[in-house]
Every structure is written in C-alpha cells, then in structure tokens.
Amino acid sequence: MPHDEEQFDTLPETIVDALRGLDGPAVLPDAERDADVLSGARLHLATRPPNRKRRNLKLFIGGSVGGGLAAAAMLGVAFILSDPNADEGLPMADLAEQNTLPTLAEEAPNSQSLTAARGDIDGSGSIDILDAYALARRLEQGQAGELDLNNDGQTNQRDIDWIANQVVALNSGEQG
C-alpha cells in the first residue's frame, strides 16, 4: 500500500500543508460548520440536474429492463396458456427456491410437542388456566411430583408460566 503522502502529490500546496498539519495538535471539528457544509452539500447534490450522458445511459438501461420484463411476461403468459395434457414440447425446469433452509420434519411421536396429555394437569381433556391453577395448588402443597413441563429439570413456577403462556398465546388456536 502506498504511503499516504504519495496520493496527495497532485493537490494544491495549501491543501497539502493543511493536511500535514492535521497530525499536529488536535483540531476538533467544528460540528456546527460541519453540519452546515453537509446539509448544503446534500441539498446541492440532490437538486443538481443529472448528467445528460448518465441520463441517456439510464434510459437505455431502463429500456433494456423493460424489454426483459416483456420477455418474462411472454414466458408467463405462454405458461398460463399451455396445454397441460401435452406430452411433447419444450421442457421447463422447476424453479428451485433460492437459499433454501432445511425445513423441520414433523415432530416425532417421542418429541416434546404439545399434546393433550402434557399440560392437562386436571385431566379435563383440554389445556386452560385451570391447569395452571391446579399445578400452582399442587406446588403450594408440595405435591407437584414430576411435572416438569418445560424440561428444565425442575417443577416450579416456570412450569405454571409455561401452561399459562400457552393458553393466552394468540396462535394457540384459542377461540374462547
């Protein structure tokens, strides 16, 4: 990598001297002036008329993209109007999803998915706040046993919370 001084050879001397002077005593930027220059720069550059050559290039690019879209439209329309019963014709590759992450398989029977049995403390056949209340009473009386619902190795308030949070979750299927 070249030394920093080499890249400044073509600049006016006054600027080069000033830049060299930056390595001297600390010069704190004047924040107000800095912001002032920046806002002026943004305003100025944002409203400058675009370079004509650049405009033409962009028009050309725009036209090319329009043509590409037209070709895509043609393919799509052809697909819609195709005869699905035909056994001959141009092959069409299946569109593969980009950057596919492996999808999770369905829960195995012995996995920790929610079932009616797990969390149904009172055996009512459904899981609701009464199950959380039942577990809370059992814990209070020291009769909770092995009801580790969240698999943290303990039976405690967190298991009660596990039930309660589940019954109030909007996507739990709760319909009231």
Partner: peptide, 9 residues
Amino acid sequence: ILAEYALPR
C-alpha cells in the same frame, strides 16, 4: 386472551 389464577395459598 387474558387469564389469571388466584394465589394458591
């Protein structure tokens, strides 16, 4: 969906 239980004691 709101739910609560009474103090178990």
